[in-house]
């Protein structure tokens, strides 16, 4: 089967050659099969967001290639690449246009894969479609098509963002801590919705999270990052057996040994 997403030897250094030089990613390799649902964990500054930004085209890698569905997209612009990629950001404000209505936001999302024309964005037929899709969220948003999105609560906005990123069936779905800014009840709602949407549409997904519990429960693969590298990976049965405490132990074991090897180099 063809790989859906391939990252080959991705390296990214910020402020290269200055005092602020920061190696954010070091020779990262990653391949996703169609339908893979990967959760990504790692400490602050591990390079998780940088990795997501390089896949989405917001940042260009210094070296390495990004291949989506067999196509090398490394130099493709962010907006062109968006035809393959759905994204939900950490900030609930980031994924929607606050001064536009729910249906207008959905119309914008609808055109992610279809070239924009001078036809109306919201037609009768589309409105029906939007209503049906919104109903799957079970938040009653289907009755508020004309409401400005800025009036929605953070949780509602994030649910809408998730829907907007997914109802057009992206090749790859990127979720960067998309439940982190929500209170526990709303975070759970969005997590459940994510699980439901990803499973019904069999979306190939990368999800960054700080919630170990979430990382263990969701998806069929798990990646741990540290210092710009993937330091631990589990999939299939191995992933199923993971628990939060075993994951923490793993993390300490690897970090510890790395620390030791760094010392060895110094000596």
């Amino acid at each position: 089967m063809q790989l859906l997403l391939q990252l080959k030897q991705i390296t990214k250094v910020f402020n290269e050659g200055t005092l602020d030089e920061k190696v954010a990613l070091k020779h990262v390799e990653l391949s996703l099969q169609p339908g893979d649902f990967v959760t990504i964990i790692g400490s602050n500054g591990a390079g998780k967001s940088t990795l997501m930004n390089i896949i989405s085209g917001r940042l260009a890698p210094d070296t390495g290639e990004v291949v989506i569905d067999g196509k090398d997209v490394t130099t493709m612009s962010e907006h062109d690449r968006a035809r393959y990629i759905g994204r939900v950001f950490q900030d609930p404000m980031a994924g929607t246009a606050p001064n536009m209505t729910i249906e207008e936001n959905l119309a914008i999302a609808y055109n992610r894969t279809v070239k924009r024309t001078l036809r109306f964005g919201v037609t009768k037929k589309r409105r029906e479609f939007f209503k049906e899709t919104l109903a799957t969220l079970q938040l009653g948003l289907e009755n508020r098509l004309h409401a400005k999105v800025g009036l929605l609560s953070g949780g509602e906005r994030q649910a809408l963002s998730l829907l907007m990123a997914t109802f057009t069936k992206p090749h790859v779905l990127l979720l960067d801590e998309h439940t982190a800014a929500l209170d526990p009840a709303r975070a759970k709602l969005i997590t459940d919705l994510t699980k439901q949407i990803v499973e019904t549409n069999r979306l190939t997904t990368l999800m960054v999270t700080h919630n170990m519990e979430q990382a263990v429960q969701l998806g069929n693969r798990l990646i741990m990052m540290d210092g710009g590298q993937i330091i631990f990976e589990a999939s299939g049965d191995e992933k199923k057996k993971l628990t939060v405490s075993s994951l923490l132990q793993e993390f300490q074991r690897i970090r510890g040994s790395q620390f030791a090897s760094d010392r060895a180099v110094l000596v």
Binding site: A82, I85, A94, G95, A97, R112
Partner: peptide, 13 residues
């Protein structure tokens, strides 16, 4: 309204 958003939906800002 939201440049980041429209860029993520294939809009050439």
């Amino acid at each position: 309204d939201n440049k980041k958003m429209i860029a993520s939906f294939s809009g050439n800002t």
